[in-house]
Design a protein around this nucleic acid. Sequence first.
DNA 1: ATGGTTTTTACTGCGTC
DNA 2: GACGCGGTAAAAACCAT
Length: 330
Amino acid sequence: MSHSNRSSQTRERTRPERTDSANERTAEQSEEAVCPECAGDVIVDERRGERVCEDCGVVVAEDQVDHGPEWRSFTSQEKRQRSRVGAPVTETLHDRGLSSVIGKGYTDAKGQPLSSETREKMSRLRTWDERFRTRNASQRNLKQAFGEIDRMASALGLPKNVRETASVIYRRAVEEELLPGRSIEAMATAALYAAARQAGTPRTLDEFEPVSRVERQEFARGYRYLARELGLAVEPADPASYLPRFASDLDLPDDAQRRAHELLESGKARGVHSGKSPAGVAAAAIYAGSVLVDEKVTQRRVAEVANVSEVTIRNRYQELLAADRATGSA
DNA sequence: ATGGTTTTTACTGCGTC
DNA sequence: GACGCGGTAAAAACCAT
């Protein structure tokens, strides 16, 4: 394929995709509804107009947009996008969106006209080539994202339902075309982070840092973006939800944890936690609790397991104690 | 970009074991 | 003397505007 042909090929490539996927959908609907991934039953989500596997959550219907490179080179949005294709995204597409397509030529390599038979054959080949390509592109994206979510979830000890929520969030993001220009990795991490918080088993951004393949900043930004665009109703994490984990990491007895919880309650009543990092407040409560029940652990160790600085613990725990005294005497 | 808030880093002095 | 703790100042990170 010569270089001068490229732009016309790009157009060629994009337009047939639409009709292809439409054809496929109608074809598939009459077929038996069984998930290709796990052979589970496929259910229809009317509201979203998509078909999803009951068991593994895989989207079966191919009514999704192909998020391959150059997908929105015609829209005005492209101009606002700082980069059309984020590096990680391109890297994960095996062909980087640059592979050649079967063109619509009517002559052979020597310029001789093709027989109608051959032309038809090529046309069929082209159709299948396109199907294969687009189907794989979106499947691959989802699969990779889900794989990442799974991997990180188990690394962080997050339960299955959190992974599922994360998958749903991620798929929504894909549907709403929030992904272009962002890396799959970052968004997968962001989705999992959001899911963990929604499920009440939050992990701090710092905890995600080592298990994610992208920088903290990137998925943090991705998360904010997701939360805003998807209208995710994510409450600020409750410090109390960190207590059990911190306590167990520190081998603290139950009463220390209970005491910490009480401190949090009175602190919350006085608004000590508002605007402060929940993990910091929780860490301070744990520390204070351990002191109060005479099972003292050092600030240093609490700081380690909670991933906050000792200074933060000091500040918060003074405030917590003050709030506790005020509530106690009031 | 900017400014306000929170957190972190780095450094200090004090007390205890 | 090392260690835990408390405090402070300045830098960095975060967030909304």
